[in-house]
Each structure stands twice: as C-alpha cells, then as structure tokens.
Design a protein around this nucleic acid. Structure first.
Lengths: 239, 239
DNA sequence: GAGTTAAATGAACAATGTTCTTTTAACCAT
DNA sequence: ATGGTTAAAAGAACATTGTTCATTTAACTC
C-alpha cells in the first residue's frame, strides 16, 4: 500500500547476519514444523523492539527464523496481518489496575505511561490505529470503560469525562509519534539565524545528557504532569 | 530505511494514468526547464492530499509531472528531502504573531490552535511528517525560534522551554490525528458490557450536540486549556 | 566560440513484498 | 499397509520501490 522510505546504499540492519537458526534445511516439509502464526508474530514484535519498525519486514522475520520468506505465507496472509497481529499483541497488554488502588489523577498518570509505552513499539501503526474505528465490543472499549468508570466514581461529570480522556489520549499518541522520531530530529544547523532556538537546544542537551534521558521522554513526562494537573484544576473548580 | 507495506497485486493509484504531462520529451536538457524544487514539493503535497501518503513516492511524483524519476534527483536529494519539503510547506502557513502582543500563555494557546488547523487540512501527512527530521535552517526552525524566544523573554528556563514546547506539539499533533477520525469512531455497540462508557458516550453526545461542537474540537479545547494551565503552574512554581 | 555546468532521458541495481512451482512429509480414509 | 489429500518447507521468479550512473542536449560563462 505505502512505502515510506527505502535506501539502496544503507545495508541497515537486515544485512547483519542475525539469523539464529540456519540448519540448511533441505526442501520439503520438515518432520517437525518450524513455524506457527504465533511464533511469527512474536518474532515480529521482538525484531521491532530490537531494531525499530524496519524489523517488521517479512524478509527480516524470515531471516531471524532461519526460514525462506515464502514459508511465512503458509501461516500469515501477508505483512498487513503480521502488523495487525503485533498491534493486538501489544495493545492487549495495557493494564488498568492502577485505578483500583490509586486516586484518579495518579492512576491516570500511570495509565498514560503504560499506554504510551505500548504504542512506542510500533509507531507506524499509530496513525492507522487513531483513525480506524475501534470495534465496539473489543478489549479497547473495555479499557475505556474501566477508565471512565473510575473517573466518574471519583466525581467527574459524566458529560465531560470522555472529552478529558480523549484529550489525554491525543497527547499520548502524539508523544508516541514523537518518541518514534530520531533524537536529533530538530538539530539546528550551525549557521542558523535561529539563535534562541539553538541556545535552547544546547541547554536541553546538556540538561538531559547529564541524566541520560531521551528528549521525547522528558517532554512526555513534563506534558503529562502539566495536563493531569490542569485537568485536576478543572475538576476542582467544577464542584 | 523502512518500508511499511507494498502490494504486488493492487495497482492502487499509480497504475491509473493520471499523468498530466507526457509530451514524449526527447533525451537531453530541454530548452525550458520542466522541473524545480518547488514544483516537485508542491506536487508531492497535492498527491498526498489526493491519494494519502502513498502519493508521496518518487515515481508517483515523477509520473504526475510527466518526467522520469531520475530527473527529480537534479532538484531534490531524495525522498527524505521531498517529505521534509512538504512539511515546510504546510508548517510555513502557521503564523506566530500572537507572541508579539499577548502574554506567553495566551499566545501559546493561539499558536496551538492555528498549528493544529494547519495539519488538520492535510490529515494524512501528520504521521509522515511528525517522524521526519526537520531541516536545520527551514521555516519550521524559524517558527520554533519565535516561540522559544517569546517564552524565554517571559522568564522560562532555557533548558526547559524546548521540552515544554515539544510536549505541547505532541498534544497538537495527536489532536490533529483525532480530528481526522470520524466523529462516531468509538460508538459503543448496544449490547456492550461497557455500561459506564456507553453512558458517558451518550452524555457527551447530548452535551455537545446542543452546541454543535465536534467531539474532537471539544477535547482539543479542554486539553489545551489544561496543558497550558499546567505549564503555567509549573512555570510559576519554578521562580 | 570553447569549456563547464545543468537538466533531462534511459538503463541499470538493490531491496522489498508477494506468488507460483516443486519437493517432502504429515494426516487420513479404506 | 497403502494410496490420496493436505500442509509446510525451499527455491525461483515478478512487480514495485528508491536510487545511481552514463549519456545526451542545452544553458551559462569567460
């Protein structure tokens, strides 16, 4: 459907021989099956964790499994199904237990953190996920229900709670996108006329470098703190 | 670097002959130049608006311009620069005058609104543009410079200002994605066990329906108010 | 006007996702 | 057990993508 980028010169990751399994299998069906749908999808997730989105290629997964690319198609219809499988694998792991034993604002903070972490693993699907209708009876709806319920119990106005949750979710998804970008994404050129920006860039670099924090993480933490505090103020004012 | 998807069977868009210009040009430099960097980038934006992100391919742009793909490389270093150029084109139209005559928090609010509006006009660019490095001397950098400068003058810590701006930007981009989704995106199914969620959904519907407000707009406004208030609190506390 | 530079074509190359054929083994009915 | 069907692997292609290189032609420059 869509190709984002592809470099002919950079061998990138897949050139490295990180095939764990290469027993020179001869042609024909093996006595014991080598692949399964689950194994393929889990390998996809592993490779994404290791090498970023580019790890999710069919050929990369095949290489890691010590198998020819065409063998994957006996278990998976194509890359689309592979990615969808990975997405389910990850988004089913967003826990909501924080709402059981924490005040709503702290629980919301915890939830936002795990939510973002879950999606940073596969950033390229964020746009799709954010625009595609969620199935009305799926795990995602149940997750929302849990959050809505906790906030309403804490005193939130029923007509405002969804508005607030969606606002936080927008920040989470935007932050996940940001985390998918390279750290030096907006590095200023030396001759730039943007002196205030260049100064701020250097100041951030040295402030964060000392704590080994990624810029995207720092922004997420600050923004999350700010937004939850702002929501809390809005909440306190309206009662 | 990365390919997301690519179908061998679906001819998709590029198969259709939407070449506007195919005068069978003979080899060699033409008397009048056919291409320019600006024309290429504007064509890229047009194709993205028409066909989604897949329109931004080098070969698609070349076909639309009635030109061989290799000709593009005389004006643009590659697809990365093309996409970066499209980004500049879009973000070029984001005004920053609010910082001239408003307090920093109000100006930030105005800026966020026009920023989001600019990207909502080209929804399918968001995911693409958010992840691509911005060129150090471009319009985007100058926009950042303007914002950084205003906030620093207002007393913001130089090492924190960029962190805050990126946080707000994440919220803006996430909200733009949300605005690109259909309004009924998370409509609960009638038989759903998610009763709290269904109740909140109905309550939001009637509250917003009275004012003819889109849910995405309501969430953006609430979130923006909350985040700016939170940043202001953070700002006041640190001085 | 000669030499250099710039802008187009045309032909390749590497890498990707995918499909098709072939080979071998598992599974299953008789 | 035996023959037929199905399943799972290899292997060889194909289409499409971004990109590079050589070639051709015209514009620009001294």
């Amino acid at each position: 459907m869509t190709t984002i980028e592809q470099s002919a010169e950079a061998p990138a990751v897949s050139a490295g021989s990180d095939a764990f399994d290469a027993p020179k299998r001869r042609v024909g069906r093996p006595r014991k099956n080598v692949l399964s749908r689950q194994l393929i999808i889990e390998t996809g997730l592993t490779l994404i964790d290791e090498h970023g989105v580019e790890g999710a290629g069919m050929r990369s997964v095949a290489k890691r499994l010590g198998v020819r690319p065409s063998a994957l198609y006996n278990h998976v219809s194509g890359q689309a199904e592979l990615i969808a499988g990975v997405r389910e694998l990850v988004s089913d792991r967003i826990p909501t237990e924080a709402f059981d034993h924490l005040p709503w604002d702290e629980a919301l903070t915890e939830w936002a953190k795990v939510y973002r972490r879950a999606f940073v693993a596969h950033p390229s699907t964020i746009a799709l996920l954010a625009v595609v209708p969620i199935e009305g009876a799926g795990a995602t709806t149940l997750m929302y229900d849990r959050v809505v319920d906790a906030l309403v119990r804490a005193g939130w106005d029923t007509s405002k709670v969804l508005v607030a949750i969606v606002a936080l979710e927008s920040f989470i998804l935007g932050s996940a996108l940001d985390a998918a970008a390279p750290d030096d994404m907006m590095k200023p050129s030396d001759d730039s006329a943007a002196v205030a920006f260049a100064e701020a860039y250097r100041a951030r670099e040295s402030a964060l470098g000392a704590r080994e924090t990624r810029p995207a993480d720092a922004s997420f933490e600050l923004g999350l703190r700010a937004m939850v505090a702002g929501l809390k103020a809005e909440f306190d004012a309206s009662r």
